[in-house]
Design a protein around this nucleic acid. Structure first.
Lengths: 209, 209, 209, 209
DNA sequence: CATGAATGAGATTTCATTCAT
DNA sequence: AATGAATGAAATCTCATTCAT
């Protein structure tokens, strides 16, 4: 398990294509503001101020404010194949789910802004056709999860008295919301949070005698 | 159990004080828009259009747009004593948690907009001192949850190999995110979703032999 | 001939549909500025200043600056059927051409801004697909002219030693540019200008012995 | 007549003073864009893009965007003495007018951008004092035309039943608008267009028996 | 209660121009 | 000569709010 955790070389989401150093700095600043206040609540002037540049000058690096958001959520979308890759390793459902939860949480921890933005801006993204590819990515990740859980039930590893769709949603929510439990420099490490959630998902909170 | 479920006489969150019928209609329209698009993304004109009134005329009913939001999240805040009331009934931790999850989900289902707004607008509300009372309410609800879980661990009903704080967050997330699983007229009833989540929380997904 | 001239009840181009008095006033102000400085050179603030309104308030009456331009050139487009109507009266080519020139000039004189804008902004309008209907209108008017001249040549009323297409362009230019010769309160009346141009078109400048 | 046409050694308008090859290339590119879209509608970046240079680098060749426009319309202004030269040859009014129309059209055809810009930007140039010299040039050309027509009327070569000022405007318009009839590689040659317009101006379109 | 016109602050974006390298 | 980053003014547009009628 330890070895496998190291697999996630993708935890640090990279710009799809490197363009310029200054541009990346600005993008990082924008990401932090988008994550803290939301995309629409963040003004181009705030980004400029935080990046030490006049708002108008941002347009040397980005054509529109929307382009910044695209650049960020596009990084999220690159996660999809990594979920599939875990499944393709062909391990048991329990191990697979563990890995998937770990991937999600570790990605979120290494790229808190990108994940926070993609999650928090979900409604906005859904309303704007230009971001349809994000919905597609969500759907694909969902499909991967669903396949694993279904297989677990089929193979008799998971309970069959629970509707798999409802199980899926619950696990999914648990994995997604894990981000909120981690605070850099806080009480718990990423691994602790992952372990706790995984333990809960598999065993529940009730004590066995 | 059936009898206890009926307890939730508070599932339908009411205006804190009744003022006028037209005002309530407008508020309902605003709630739907806030829930669908977010508070800041919703314009006063959209509310007017949807309510069949000119935007300027809204100011006969509300002093500001913010007042509408206050009115809505204030309804959420009224939930706090109901959580406390469940605990005060003095039942076992397991039963108590079941009731609390049920309360949360049933409230969310009966008042989807109010809950969705309070959850989705969390960052916005946190940034604005005028809404500090919402943070207080969250903290109080959290404290109630924490007390119950701690008691469960102390009494040996819940596992003691998991950090109670992490358990709390997980259960909390599970309860809060349950809203997203319910769709009016969808595949699952509220009770089914509650039962599935409760089962998962207590027993986990792993099959017992 | 006098009677026929009165036909032009359309010389004063009307708003396609009456909306509000204030809106019309603003539109008139905008028309004057567009005509004087060009559409793109005119700022929304100048329009506001000239109309005694803040620039932002213009958006109560028009959704965009472009909408103002549409409203104006759309009035021009309504001219098309009137050209056709003259032809449909079935008079001789000479008389028909006289009437068409008179129609064009009288329209231009009564609506100098609308015509000036449509003519001066031709390149801009051609580049923007939203204004394609203006090109269509020009083409239709052109077709009417061409038909009349061709008929004149066929019937032996007009010279056949000149290419009709070149004749058309020349007459057209003469008719269109006539606008520039008229100045309200200036030396020449509309009728004088029309008569002079018509005389020139038919007889040329050379003296007959 | 053939011989006289060759007179127009000035048909190709030259830069007033040669500075650098690269500068001329850029100016040509700018001219094309100004002609196609208008001066104000053309951005410095578009010029840079079309010239294969960054917009900022244009300022190594020109101090301002306006300087480019000056350079172009200044070429137009050099036409004035050539009109005067035709008159000074002392031929009859008819021949003189023919030559003047030919000069105008041939210049326009050989330097379509410069002429198109000077004509199309007329309003802009009139509003800006820095371009007053262009107005002066127009006025001078006008004066030359007027003198010729007046002489034609005085000498009994032209009709005296038409106001010379109105005749002037008409002929002028006809000459100026001729540009629009010529398309490089199109149906008609420059000479054909000139001949047609000259014929129309002198004889009109009506057939003589 | 409602309308419709207006306000005024602020948002995103454009663009000629500057300048260190 | 050219690059590329930045400036700063101005443009279009948005929107919560006000107010006379």
């Amino acid at each position: 398990m330890e070895a496998k955790r190291k697999v996630s070389t993708v935890a640090r989401l990279k710009p799809v294509e490197k363009v310029s150093k200054r541009r990346d700095e600005i993008l990082q600043v924008a990401a932090e503001l988008f994550a803290a206040k939301g995309y629409e609540e963040t003004t181009i002037r705030e980004i400029g101020d935080a990046a030490g540049i006049l708002s108008g000058s941002l347009y040397h690096h980005f054509q529109t404010k929307e382009e910044m958001l695209h650049e960020l959520v596009r990084r999220f979308v690159t996660m999809v194949p990594h979920y599939q890759a875990i499944v393709d390793r062909g391990e048991g459902p329990k191990e697979t789910i563990k890995e998937m939860m770990a991937l999600g949480l570790r990605t979120a921890v290494s790229n808190p802004e990108v994940v926070a933005i993609t999650v928090h801006e979900r409604k906005f993204l859904a309303r704007h056709p230009a971001f349809a590819y994000v919905q597609t990515a969500w759907r694909q990740i969902n499909a991967v999860w669903y396949g694993v859980i279904q297989r677990g039930v089929d193979e008799g590893v998971f309970r069959d008295d629970l509707d798999p769709r409802l199980m899926l949603r619950a696990i999914n929510d648990l994995a997604a919301a894990a981000v909120g439990s981690y605070q850099p420099g806080g009480r718990y490490s990423v691994e602790e949070i992952i372990d706790a959630r995984v333990a809960l998902v598999f065993g529940g909170i009730e004590r066995r005698n």
